[in-house]
Write a protein that binds this DNA or RNA. Structure first.
Length: 287
DNA sequence: TTCATTTGACCGGT
DNA sequence: ACCGGTCAAATGAA
């Protein structure tokens, strides 16, 4: 088929995404430069506060690039565009960017399917990019692991450790996205925890004689060390003062459910909540 | 001994 | 037929 010169063609969604990815990468590089400059600040307090902020910026940019790369596949319909997409996604060794030519449509249908119940009903889900997939403060029990077509890394399947005791329907799928150091994982949370509603206000799990409970990773947020968590510390103070506190998409109470030691730092979770809210507010709903 | 994890088999949707 | 998700026996760790 005759091709028009590229300059005459309006940019495709894939082209636009590529440009956005490139800009985000530049931003991440600039953030890294800024971090190096900030490390020269002599005052410890100011330096740490600045490094915390620039770290937030950097994490958000890198995560955005990752999201766009995995999402870009949807817009790559022609073989040329597909080739460009996979080339752009080569920085991540695995995950959704590593699929073969037939992967696009199939991957989408599969993704949609695993968020449906056995009767085909829509299940509530959240997707989070994280470097510490196991540290969300809940007790999970692994029940399976599966090699996924065209994915470098296997997918692990977890259900809530209280699924039997409290019939908690929460599930979690964890898939390593790349080989970076530390690697990034895509965590898909399916169904809300009903067991968490049974927890006392300090988020301690219900105690019982079962070892599953005894081994729970859920700790008391109020006693957790929040060393560099400027934002969350502020939220905590405001909550102690009786104020209703909200972070993007999540109340403080929800955030505190995820916070524990030595689990994911509040800073990381705050960033990931933002990532999650981006997923949830995408036009058309999810990926 | 108990419980969590691993892993091959099986099931159901596409 | 293929593939993702789940089951359950086997295995390992505490």
């Amino acid at each position: 088929m005759a091709m028009r010169p590229k300059s005459e063609m309006s940019p495709t969604p894939s082209d636009q995404r590529g440009a956005v990815i490139e800009e985000l990468r530049k931003g991440a590089q600039l953030a890294d430069c800024l971090r190096q400059q900030l490390e020269l600040i002599p005052e410890l307090g100011r330096r740490n506060a600045a490094l915390y902020n620039v770290s937030n910026i950097s994490t958000a940019l890198v995560s955005s690039v990752s999201m766009l790369q995995s999402d870009r596949e949807q817009y790559s319909c022609s073989s040329d565009a597909r080739a460009a997409s996979y080339a752009a996604g080569a920085s991540g060794a695995g995950g959704s960017g590593s699929g073969g030519p037939r992967n696009g449509a199939i991957a989408r249908t599969r993704k949609a399917r695993h968020r449906r119940g056995i009767h085909g009903e829509e299940l509530p889900f959240k997707e989070i990019l994280t470097k510490t997939p196991g540290n969300d403060g809940f007790h999970w029990r692994k029940y399976g692991e599966k090699k996924i077509l065209n994915a470098v890394f296997p997918r692990s399947y977890y259900r809530c450790g209280y699924s039997d005791e409290h019939r908690c329907p929460a599930k979690k799928l964890v898939q390593q996205q790349n080989n970076s150091d530390p690697p990034v994982f895509m965590v898909t949370l399916i169904n809300d925890h009903t067991c968490s509603s049974l927890f006392p206000t300090n988020n301690q799990p219900p105690r019982s004689s079962s070892s599953a409970t005894a081994n729970s990773q859920v700790l008391d947020f109020t006693t957790a060390s929040l060393s560099s968590a400027v934002g969350v510390s502020r939220l905590k103070k405001e909550e102690d003062a009786g104020m209703s506190v909200t972070v993007p998409s999540y109340t403080y109470h929800e955030l505190s459910c995820y916070s524990s030691l030595p689990l994911l730092s509040p800073m990381e979770w705050e960033t990931e909540m933002v990532i999650n809210s981006l997923f949830r507010h995408r036009p058309g709903g999810g990926i």
